[in-house]
Write a protein that binds this DNA or RNA. Structure first.
Lengths: 237, 237
DNA sequence: ATCCAATGTGTTCTATAGACACAAACCTAT
DNA sequence: ATAGGTTTGTGTCTATAGAACACATTGGAT
């Protein structure tokens, strides 16, 4: 244990004498959620590390020296999905010494919500795919834990913030919205209570259009009034 | 923009070819809250950086290569206060390129709650002091923003988790508890509603002892049943 | 015309939040 | 001992939100 407590200046400025502090790499990992076939999905890539062969991992990259942390997660997202007008939120930073087998990497996790169908997918490299969240048992590194943490955050936030608009088409029925909530929460919801609760939030505008191509009575279409890209105040109501 | 997306292995293992990614320093900053004279306080240190002379800053340090991120914040806390059985919680990671004038530093903020009177303060270096939170207008670097973020987190969490036991003596009156909540929240609370709400949480045991040395009718003393050091599930009820 | 499947709607019950008042207890000063 | 001061301890009313729950209506399909 050092007798004195060097502050940031000491170590950050006099790099030569404290070189060892830069042996920590900084990365971001993005939990990119999508929604398809009434299932919540997450964008994964086949891990190419020897130790984790066969496993998938989240999308991440090292943060560049001239790049803000948030910008790095935006970059990863844009490189992979071509989208840049999406919801993106920092969740937690994972910094265990041994979390990465190849060296010390501190990684900040973000989650985002994108419309699987909207984006001009850069899934040319077909190691990428949208995997149903429910069926994920194991991921490379500590990525399963990161996924779980982000999923919990998502589940908390959808009740207070209209973030899920990113996962739906412009116009949607209340039933489609409820199915999305059920997919995210992993539970079933009472239809009447759900509609009441959503109505109270005043997030939606009711349109004069009806569903089409349904084999039953069509419901009215709705759309979100707001398009929040970030949760400004991470508070409860 | 790179054509391919190097993954962590590429950059973290082959250090020689990606040395630049290690020019980011990783640090922790601790927002250490205390409570004295019915005021919420935070432990600050006089910044010795030229540009910020006269300003105070939070307690932080670089993360060591062989040290977990959480462990680094525990270490900072222990070095400064001598305490290691305290509540400590990660809040957010700040990673703007220009947040630190001396170089690129990504810093993860933690907040903790300690009893100002309990600890054998390592405040021998008397640049340290407990500053009332209310009167803090400006801090070095982005530390004011970090403080605000942590204070918001604290305010959210005290309603759902019995974390404030760290700020009180073993035995306390309900009035003392309410004054603490009012100091943290920056508002005044209705006494009856406060007692009712606290009773509902079942966090406290009522003792058979009374306050002493008060100039009025003494209240019953209470103590916390649990001593949570970490918030296990960062969920709402 | 009938069947089918989903829409659209309201009440009851329970729990929690907020506003609000008064009697009892202990201390102090006389 | 008595009276005055200050705080404790307690309960009701109202409003709001969550959870459980049923039925008539609509449009499509046959």
């Amino acid at each position: 244990m050092r007798a004195n407590h060097p502050n940031l200046k000491t170590a950050a400025v006099e790099k030569s004498s404290h070189r060892e502090y830069f042996n920590i790499a900084v990365s971001v990992d993005c939990v990119i959620f999508g929604y398809e076939d009434k299932e919540l999905r997450v964008l994964l890539i086949k891990s190419d590390l020897e130790e984790f062969s066969g496993l998938f991992s989240l999308l991440g990259d090292l943060v560049r020296p001239d790049e803000d942390l948030d910008a790095a997660s935006y970059r990863v997202l844009k490189e992979r999905t071509g989208l840049d007008d999406v919801f993106l939120q920092q969740v937690h930073t994972f910094g265990a010494v041994k979390r990465h087998p190849s060296g010390r990497v501190v990684s900040t996790a973000y989650y985002s919500l994108v419309n699987i169908h909207n984006h001009k997918l850069n899934i040319d490299c077909h190691d990428l795919h949208w995997h149903p969240v429910q069926t994920i048992k194991k991921l490379a590194f500590d990525h399963k834990q990161i996924l779980d943490t982000c999923l919990n955050m998502l589940r908390e936030q959808i009740m207070d913030h209209p973030v899920v608009h990113n996962l739906l088409p412009e116009k949607f029925s209340l039933r489609a919205l409820q199915e999305l909530y059920e997919a995210i929460l992993g539970t079933s919801l009472d239809r009447r209570n759900f509609r009441k609760k959503i109505a109270l939030k005043s997030w939606l505008s009711e349109l004069d259009e009806l569903e089409e191509d349904v084999t039953h009575r069509p419901g009215k279409l709705h759309k979100f009034k707001t398009k929040a890209l970030k949760i400004s105040a991470p508070k409860k109501n």
